[in-house]
């Protein structure tokens, strides 16, 4: 272990690192290998058949498409939230600021039931939309809605501190040089917060792809139309097809891992660029 690290006078590396690795192995790594091991019982052809059947492919399209779109929506609204929270005063601001994290703290099943109640055609919002011919609950739009709900805090909370740390002098200088407010935003502010927006986007996306509890109550679950990928795992399990379920699961796991590597890379990049200067 010691050969791995550079010299430090502090004690406890062996103990802390050892404990970390053992705990990580027991809780995360070994159980996740079980997914891989079970998948390997399939053989390549069966694996490919399991992860590329039309219904599963349609579910990837929905899960990844809706998650991308939801994360995109969250970037726009998350930025607006972060902006007004950092820069403006308005009534109810304290409330908004603390409740932005609600989707994170509220159990997903509760969120799903509540959203289905509100947006179904006899719910308070669904009732208003029905005459307009807009249906949300039990369509792919319902999936999108639930994913927007759970992803919102991630963008707000990554952008907010960066926006708060942005030095006023830079903006004043830009204004002094005759830049309009919009130019200042596009040329100065946006590039500065772009990595944070990207990180928030990636986190909202990563979370949305795997989400189950809140989506299942509001998606119609119609094959080829509104089935999400986690539901396909459950569907395979219900047919006692453990290996097929783990095959789809391992596809999702690999995607999650790659996504996280990207997020962590982005965060490292952000820290190098801004943390010391902030």
């Amino acid at each position: 272990m010691a050969s791995l690290r550079r010299f430090s006078p502090l004690p406890g590396f062996g103990l802390a690192m050892g404990y970390t690795l053992v705990y990580l192995a027991i809780i995360v790594v070994i159980p996740l290998t079980a997914v891989g091991a079970k998948t390997f019982t399939l053989g390549w052809d069966a694996f490919w058949a399991a992860v590329s059947s039309p219904r599963v492919v349609a579910s990837y399209q929905l899960s990844f498409g809706a998650s991308l779109l939801a994360a995109g929506i969250n970037v726009v609204f998350g930025l607006i939230f972060a902006w007004v929270l950092v820069r403006y005063r308005f009534p109810g601001k304290g409330l908004v600021d603390s409740l932005v994290d609600l989707p994170f703290a509220l159990p997903t099943a509760v969120a799903g039931i509540a959203l289905a109640t509100i947006y179904s055609q006899n719910g308070p919002v669904g009732k208003l939309l029905e005459p307009l011919g807009v249906e949300i609950a039990y369509t792919p739009k319902g999936v999108l809605l639930a994913l927007v709900f759970i992803g919102l805090p991630f963008v707000v909370r990554t952008v907010q501190p960066v926006l708060a740390d942005l030095e006023k002098e830079v903006e004043e200088a830009a204004a002094g040089l005759g830049a309009s407010r919009w130019q200042t935003f596009c040329k100065i502010i946006l590039p500065h917060i772009a990595p944070a927006l990207l990180t928030g986007f990636a986190m909202a996306f990563a979370r949305a792809v795997g989400e189950y509890g809140s989506v299942i109550f509001i998606a119609g679950n119609v094959p080829m139309v509104s089935e999400i990928t986690p539901l396909m795992i459950i569907t395979k399990l219900e047919q006692y097809d453990y290996a097929g379920a783990t095959a789809v699961a391992s596809v999702m796991l690999i995607i999650s891992f790659v996504l996280l590597l990207i997020i962590n890379g982005l965060q490292g990049w952000m820290q190098n660029r801004y943390a010391r200067g902030a």
């Binding site: 996740l32 792809v209 986690p230 699961a249 999702m252």
Partner: peptide
């Protein structure tokens, strides 16, 4: 660090299944 983060983005369905 990425391994420590992993449970955050693993679908809850998979978290139970493992």
């Amino acid at each position: 660090i990425t391994l420590i983060d992993l449970p955050f983005s693993v679908s809850p369905v998979i978290s139970g299944l493992i």
